[in-house]
Every structure is written in C-alpha cells, then in structure tokens.
Design a protein around this nucleic acid. Structure first.
Lengths: 344, 344
DNA sequence: GCTGGCACTCGGTAGGTTGGAGTGCCAACC
DNA sequence: GGTTGGCACTCCAACCTACCGAGTGCCAGC
C-alpha cells in the first residue's frame, strides 16, 4: 500500500508529532537519521501522503499532522510492545504490594495504568463480551426491613454482587434462612453462565417465593453487569491527566462527561475487543465526543478465561507504543495475581 | 461589624460577581434598586471594604472581586435556603424512581447534586466523624482459594463490607462454616460502634483462629472505612462540570487530581462538619490545590443518626444559595429513602 | 455626608508590521 | 525518472502601537 519510504516518512511524522504536539515540517523529517533524502523529496512524499489521507495540513504554511487513518497505519505497523524496564519494575512493585479487595484492586489498577502512561486508566471488571466466568461460592438473603431484603452472592473470583429485593416476607427471618440454605444448595459451585431457570420447590410456598426472588435478583445483578452493564464494575482513574492532554476546555469537559457514563465506557471497551483489536483511534470509537481520543485495551484472563478488560484512554496523539506495552504487561500481571488469590 | 449599607454593597458585589465572573464596578452596584446612593458613594464604601479585606482589586482600573473573607460574610448572612420549585421537583422525581443498591444510589445521588447545582457532587457514605451507625445483620466467611477467604458482612443500612483474609485453613470448608456460624451468633445485631475485642472460644483451635481473623477483618474494614477511610464509600459525580468552572487548565487538573484521592475528600468533608459548619470557602479548606474552591456540605441522617455526608464542590464564586438549598433538600430526602428501605 | 465632575490609570482590543517556518514548483543534475 | 537546491509565495504568530473605555480616587460644592 505504501512503499517503504513513504511508510518511514509517515512514521517519522507521527513520532515527531506525538513528541511535540506541533505540526511537523519536511525539514524535521529529513533531519532524522533513518531518512536520507532531502527535505524537497520529503515534501513531495508528504504531499502524496496528504492526498492519500494519511496526513493533514492545518493551513498552507504549516507542517503536517496525522489523520486517524495515519495513526491507524502507524499502529498496525507497531511490533510487539517491549515495556521499558522502569515500567516493568513499577508494575511488579505494584502487584507485589497489592492485596485485599477485588474492587479496590481494580480501582488501583486503573490508577496504575494512568501513572504508567500519563493517560486515563480504565478497568472493566466482569468481562467485556462473555459473562464473567466464575463460580458461585456463596449466596445469601439478608433481611433489612419489613419488606426489603438483600441478596448477596460471592463469586470464586472474589467478586461480590448484591441486589435488593422487595418481598412482603422479608421480615420473616426463619423463612429467609430456609431460602438461603436452599439457594446455597442449589447454586453453590454453579457457573454463572449456567444458572438454572428455576429451583426445585421446598414445599413451603413462602420460602419458595423468597427463593425465586433471590434467584431473580442474582440473575438481575449478573445480567445487568455483563449484559446491559448497568452495574458493571467500571473504574476510571487518572482523569485529571486528560485536562492537560487537550487544550480546548470544551473538549476536556465533554470527554470527562462521557467517561462518567459507565455504560458508555463498557460498550466502548467491548466494541474494540469485539473487533478483535487492541486499539481504536478517534472516529473509530464511534462517539462524537471522543473523536479526539484513542483507546488501547487488553483483556485479562484468570486461569485462561477472559475475566475483564483494562485499557487507557487519551488523545489520539498518545504514545501508542508505551500505552500498548503498559496495558499488555498490566493485563498479564493482573490476571496472574487475581488467579492466584481467588481463582483456585 | 459592617453597617447596613456596607453589607448591602458587599452583597451586591458578590451577587453580581457570582453572576458574571467579572470584576464589579461601582456603577453596576449603584444601579441596583436596593442601593440608592450614587456611584461615588459606592466607590467610597468599596474602598473601605477593600481595606477591611472583604474585597480585592485585580488592578487599579478594574472593579472589585470578593475575597474569601467577603464570601464568608456573605454566606453567614444567608438565610435558610428555600429551594426553587424546579429543584424540589427534580429531587422528588429522582427519589421516587430510586431503587436498588446502596452504592449505586449514593453514586447517582452525587450525580443528582451535580445536576442540580452545576458543580461537582460528593457523597460520602459511612459517616464523617462518628462511625457508621448500623447494626450487623449478617457476617460470613467464604473460602476463595487454599489460603484465601473473604469476610462479607451486611449492615442494617444495606451496606456490604468485605475484606480478604489469608489463613492456612481457608480451604477447610467445614471449619469456615463453623466459624461463620459462631461469628454470626456473636455479632448479629451488634452495633458497629460496639464491637467486642474478642469472641469466646469454640473449643476448636483452628475454628477459633478463623473466627479471630474474621473479626479482625471486620474491624479492619470498618475502621479503614470510618477511621483512616481507605475504603470509605466515596462517590464524586459531575467532575466534568469543573472543567468549565475554571479557566486555567492547570487549576482544573490539580482540582481533579485532588478529588481522585478519596482520603482527601473524606477528610475535607469531615473537617467542615467538625467545625460545625456547612460551608468552607477557599483557603478555609486548608488545601493549596483547592484554594479556589468552596464546598457546601450537609450530613444525612437515617432514623436520627448521622449516616453520611453529601456536598458539592465548585469554584469560590459558586451560587451558595442554590448549593445550600440543593444540598439541604437532598440530604433530607436521601436519609428518608434510606431509612425507609433499609433502616427498620 | 452625599454628589457630580474631573483627571488619571491601566487593561484589552484592533490594526499594522515583521519574521520565520513551511510549502509548492521548477530547473538542473545524476 | 527520481532527486535536489533554489526560490517565490503564503500564512501564522509574535510584537508593537495607539486607542478606547471602564473604573478609580479625589475634590469642590451642595
């Protein structure tokens, strides 16, 4: 598609632009050691690259800046990421010190990603496309008021899901206990992907009603976390760094506002993975408000199964190489740590 | 301290400044219907107010802008807030539609506050100064791996706290079950403020060890949420609106970065309430990065006990009256809804 | 003590100039 | 034919300047 020289020049322009955030001129490209033609020739090629849509020119007497298409070519040429030692070290230190809650860990991981890349970090627990692959370890109904109870379930990966349920019998401690026992018997060890539609009767109508409500609550909280993703486990860290990444205040505002909508973040991440890709650039995200952003994502696996997704979000002129390296190494280590702690 | 006329003029300046964000001149003040002296007289008073520290002048030929001290006087004069009907309506609609998870509800409440005031909304669950006043409804140990278990406790207010614990016996399902039962017997219905230091022995050393770890985990998760506040239930919504509130990008960045530190947010809110106040202005916050911000807070009560704090954060030139009204009405309704659902 | 008048200050804006970075094109060269 | 240095051209950004107007402080008069 592009001959070697064009590709080299495009790469040079993009690297320079990522570094300086300024339009890149032919002289700056020609100066590079891996380009040994004159600036006039570079100019000629730049013109060609522009008419092919890889570059853009803000105005006549300015240098070129990459288009989404230019970035796309650039990242497709990117080889396997090699995380710089400093990054690797920081990641190792983080996961050695890590302990405790799943949720807190995911939140901290989003901050780690942000620190490593100087972008916003995103962690989506409970998977992107498949449902969270986990077994139920415990399920329980706890009465809260006369007509309100709470369903609390613990998964083998350490996740705790909960959902309130309204029932006229929520004050009936005995029956709640019976329902809890019955639910536990029927669901303990069951994969969340394999939930039964109903549970055998106990002989007591009220208990059965509670059991049914409990199962419904569980299904609700699982589908709403993997399906519509209302309750999905979304953590976004380091949003402050976005304030510096864009100079237009309005852009900052709309990007932040978009990131606050967990649903949007989840589908964003999922769509990229659905496309079997790791990187989405600008318009590829399909969101007007994020047209100046790119994301780099990676799924993390616990014992071979996709358990969630991490990623970073920043301006299209981010350091893709660094971002890809960080996301990759963190996803590996995160899966490892979660697997050893809670997966066995 | 200030005679009536000075107070009226100060009030006029502040209201105008809140509205326009521009330095206010003597003519603009004199034009107001409640000021019936000439601009020359106003100028004289403005000079006096400035030398007393209530106002500041960016440069010689500019109008005046309020200082922190000026805002302080202004808010102290503020009467009881009367929420505009639109606000009241929106709040009612929100709480009528509200349902489900405590955490989700708190997060949504922070967004509600943000929408009402056009500032960032803050909700701190689990109280500000006293520990969360709630009874334990259920406590459970769930094995996750060979050496990891999860303590999950449900409170009467619907909060779920959890904490991992490492123990060589975490794989011993039988003993975990025994420990769960024993813990439940000892702690069910106990107030979190009244936790025992230790729990009577069961006769089995391993079970006892698990019981002790479980209690420790519970104490940990409670103190770390009410004490050091590492895990405190902090929700900040509408941060995007801050991007517009300040014109300096650097300010936006540092404010956002500060808000990401949950610990800081918790202590911020707590300190204001400790001072028995509702509003803290600029320097009163004691944080360099927030010197251009103010917060307006209110505790919310569930059945007469302080259960948490809500508030808004924005630039010092926020609409204090509106903010106070919104925070007040939301805190009342929030406490009411939580009480009826989960407090009885 | 209040007021209108007045000289003064100073920041922001509009217009005009300049410098430089960068381009496109072309003729010459290999 | 591809590559190169040269050159005229464009256009932004920075700078300067003048100026306008908002706002002040002060003062004399009511």
């Amino acid at each position: 598609m592009l001959d070697d020289r064009k590709a080299a020049i495009l790469k040079a322009v993009i690297e320079k632009y990522i570094e300086t955030a300024q339009p890149v001129g032919s002289a700056a490209v020609a100066k590079r050691s891996d380009i040994d033609v004159s600036s006039a020739t570079v100019r000629h090629e730049l013109g060609a690259l522009e008419s092919e849509g890889y570059l853009d020119q803000p105005h006549t007497s300015a240098g070129r800046i990459p288009t989404d298409k230019g970035y796309r070519f650039f990242v497709d040429e990117l080889g396997e990421p090699a995380p710089p030692p400093a990054t690797a070290k920081q990641v190792r230190a983080f996961f050695n010190a890590a302990h405790g809650e799943l949720e807190r860990m995911l939140l901290d991981t989003s901050k780690l990603l942000s620190n490593l890349t100087n972008l916003a970090g995103v962690v989506v627990g409970g998977s992107g496309d498949a449902r969270a692959a986990a077994d139920i370890r415990s399920i329980q109904l706890v009465g809260l008021g006369e007509s309100t109870a709470l369903m609390v379930a613990v998964m083998s990966n350490g996740a705790v899901v909960r959902h309130t349920l309204d029932s006229p019998h929520a004050g009936d401690t005995t029956r709640l206990g019976a329902a809890t026992v019955h639910l536990g018997g029927a669901l303990d060890g069951v994969r969340t992907t394999n939930l039964p539609d109903s549970i055998s009767a106990t002989g007591d109508a009220i208990t059965d009603a509670l059991v049914t409500s409990g199962l419904a609550a569980l299904c609700d909280s699982l589908t709403s976390s993997a399906g519509v993703a209302v309750n999905a486990d979304v953590h976004v860290g380091g949003t402050a760094r976005l304030a510096e990444a864009f100079d237009a205040v309005e852009t900052v505002r709309s990007v932040l506002a978009t990131l606050e909508q967990q649903l949007v973040v989840v589908s964003l991440v999922r769509e990229v993975l659905d496309r079997d890709s790791r990187i989405a650039i600008g318009g590829e995200l399909g969101l007007e408000t994020l047209s100046q952003c790119s994301v780099v994502v990676a799924p993390y696996e616990i014992e071979g199964e996709i358990a969630g997704t991490i990623g970073v979000l920043g301006p299209t002129r981010m350091d893709y190489s660094q971002a890809l390296a960080a996301v990759t190494v963190v996803s590996k280590r995160l899966g490892g740590v979660l697997g050893e702690g809670g997966g066995a």
